[in-house]
Design a protein around this nucleic acid. Structure first.
Lengths: 204, 204
DNA sequence: ATTTTAAGAATGAACGGTTCATTCTTAAAT
DNA sequence: ATTTAAGAATGAACCGTTCATTCTTAAAAT
């Protein structure tokens, strides 16, 4: 009857779909909703533009699917900071360094940043993002920062404000999307950590 | 013959031209070269789109004119940091605060950031920007930072790297173009100053 | 009366999302 | 081996939209 069993087909199809979403993440993160073209996503996913429409009925559906997935994964990644080794400060440094090092780790941030500032973002995407706002991340990190403050690793003061500033700067840095040339060089994690670092003593 | 002398006319025209450039700065800074539409510039300058073409023969010419003007003004602004009152650290804080406070002060940064990362930027604009690169700003600020380091106000270490990181983060923050809503709030200058701040002692 | 200025409509080219006719692949059935 | 047909893939239109730019027209200035 059918050349491929039902099960095989579904699996295969799902894998393809995921491949497209990953390509879309890269393209949408870098270029934004309107700057990203379906043809670019197709190229990145290594199939023809027409093919995309066998998996997603529109650019909008693809975008919403992408946002949904990224929102969930990011929330997950946030939680996983707690599993990192060392003190709260160590955990945060490791987290920060890994994001600044790996380009692929930056895509979700860029995507969300774009989605939050671009216009004509589909309502459904907006709603999804509202469920996963910065406010939520702050609450999620609050215990970690508070412990760090108790230990003296992390600077005293309004904790939420500190987290907010830190996340904003990290996000800003990622979003900057700098060409790594002679003129600019990505500040490393340690520079960024100075923002939340507790009191230092002279000469180290 | 004419109640307006030749001279007056030219002056009037020049003023109008400048008005357009300023409108363009705002629009191009926020939306980038391709995101900015001539109709938007026209609206901002409070004239019709068609009128623009009496002053600039193309979008490209307008853009190049704008880049040239901004590049020069920015270099000028950089120099003026030295004229600010107080210690090197004070000067830098004042400078930073004033940029973060006033939106109009951020336009040049945004424009340059866009121009440096966008594609299909006119060659002439690229060339103009190369003359006023970050590298140049770093050299310009070097004496100020070195003095600050000698005084202990500013953190020790590779001075150029420190300046670069500071400028990059400032630029990133500005470029982020955050909506000032409940979720996000612009980190203030003092937070940013922690990046370059010299050794702190416990309890202030 | 003539020129200048302005606004706004018209133009035309490029772009890009989407569709579709057609060709290819592949694995089961013969 | 050969056939067969479903699903995969392509690439070329299609077609609406979006601008940059030009044209038309009329008011205002001189």
């Amino acid at each position: 009857m059918s050349p491929l069993s039902e099960e095989q087909l579904i699996k295969r199809r799902e894998a393809q779909r995921q491949r497209i979403v990953e390509a879309a993440l890269k393209v949408f993160a870098v270029r934004g909703l309107h700057g990203a073209k379906m043809s670019m996503v197709a190229e990145e996913a290594e199939l023809s533009a027409g093919q995309l429409y066998r998996f997603f009925e529109s650019k909008e559906e693809l975008y919403i699917t992408l946002i949904r997935q990224v929102a969930e994964e990011t929330a997950q990644a946030m939680k996983s900071i707690y599993d990192l080794p060392g003190s709260p400060f160590d955990k945060l440094r490791t987290f920060t360094a890994s994001i600044l090092k790996e380009e692929s780790a930056q895509f979700p941030f860029k995507l969300i940043q774009h989605a939050n500032t671009a216009e004509d973002v589909p309502d459904e995407a907006k709603q999804l993002l509202q469920q996963f706002t910065a406010k939520r991340y702050i609450e999620q990190l609050l215990p970690l920062f508070e412990e760090g403050q108790r230990m003296g690793d992390i600077a005293q003061g309004d904790t939420r404000k500190l987290i907010s500033a830190f996340l904003t700067l990290l996000s800003a840095l990622i979003t900057l999307n700098m060409p790594i040339d002679d003129d600019h060089q990505m500040p490393d994690a340690d520079i960024l950590m100075r923002i939340i670092e507790g009191p230092r003593v002279r000469d180290r």
